[in-house]
Amino acid sequence: MDAIFIFEQLLNGLGYGLMLFLLAAGLTLVFGIMDTMNLAHGSLYMAGAYIAAKVHESSGSFLGAVLVAIVATILIAALIEWLVVRRLYSRDHLAQVLATFGVILIADDLVKAIWGPSPIMAPTPAALTGPVQLLAELPYPAYRLVLLGVGLAVALGLYLLVNHTRMGMLVRAGASNRSMAEFMGVRVGRVFSFVFALGAALAALAGALMGPIGAVQIGMGEAILIPALVVIVIGGIGSVRGAFVAALLVGLVDTAGRAFLPPMLRAVLPPSLAADLGPALAGIAMYVLMAAVLTLKPAGLFPARA
């Protein structure tokens, strides 16, 4: 296990963390600002992935496909907001969880009816199929580098938006005290709609970008929803900064667990026990991390509503 191998694994952890961040950012934004738990975020992610894959396949343009997917998903999200989510803003979290869980069930059947039950093809853009040579000894998938870049750009963009723009100020005002903000003339309803659309756009972006390296299939939203929820909870719900830190933390812990734990256990334990224990522990590393963080800080690392 040399330095380059360790460096590569850290990079992999970072990459996985940023993928989770793309999904978690939208989730935590909607939750933090609108106090709304939207499980259907996973369905928007799925919609983004399916639309991007289909458009990419038929048009040949990946960039165009991502943009179409984002726009289409925002429209879908607007429909869901208008039909369901809007009526949930004033309700408790449990009601939100239940109704949006219902949306997931409907979305999965809908996707099955439209595109069939089999996973669909989501090609990698031709220019990015191979690896690039980062160091002499370290080839790294070009597409993953793009993911890293987009993840960092989104993180920076969100930071600027929330902290340094007029819209961000309105968003923060609406979040911290809705009635006061309304009294001061802020159209909070409009701000909320903007935030919900932004969340949907982020989900679609994440889905569209994940397509080329993962299976585009029904249930893909639920599979990644759990790690994304873990991320926003560790980070402190509603905090974009928290989600960023937590996503990197989860990505690193999960990757390190898979890469380093089994060989380490093999060095100290009998082989058969190590073979059973290593992967099992690596599989739950993320949950152990969350339980540990919440035991020490019951409201996450960066509590947004202190």
């Binding site: 738990m37 979290h93 759990i226 873990v230 909870v233 949950y287 152990v288 339980a291 919440l294 019951p298």
Partner: peptide, 20 residues
Amino acid sequence: VSLRARGVYFLMITLAFAQM
């Protein structure tokens, strides 16, 4: 362990243990 957390945090930590 879990009951020290509240609301959604409690929900998620119970989920974490069940996943383990």
